[in-house]
């Protein structure tokens, strides 16, 4: 996985916190996902100014007992799912 990739959130989706986690819902497509606490924190850490490396660093700060490799491993399918559902878009490099 390319950890230097940056992502942009779809501005039309709805983010709703529930319990420790949060729902993502796209009213245009009906796509829906519930993220647990670590998913929610990851999602919140993503923005078009930060690459995935920075997101991993942020997650390490939130979950100090986890190791970097594990976080990176979990990140890949998570990001892929968010992309497939149209919740995130990769930013194209210039």
């Amino acid at each position: 996985m390319d950890l230097t990739q940056k992502f942009k959130k779809n501005k039309d989706i709805v983010y709703k916190e529930e319990g420790d986690g949060a729902f993502l819902f796209d009213p245009a497509t009906g796509n829906l996902k519930y993220m647990n606490r670590s998913g929610k924190e990851t999602f919140l850490s993503l923005n078009d100014q930060q690459d995935l490396n920075q997101a991993v660093n942020y997650m390490l700060g939130q979950f100090p007992d986890e190791n970097r490799r594990r976080i990176e491993k979990d990140l890949e399918p998570f990001i892929k799912e968010l992309e497939e559902n149209g919740f995130l878009f990769p930013l194209h490099r210039e």
Partner: peptide, 13 residues
């Protein structure tokens, strides 16, 4: 769908 169903995040499912 109308009423609360129109605004529910589960309406598609």
């Amino acid at each position: 769908l109308k009423g609360v169903c129109e605004h529910c995040i589960f309406k598609f499912q």
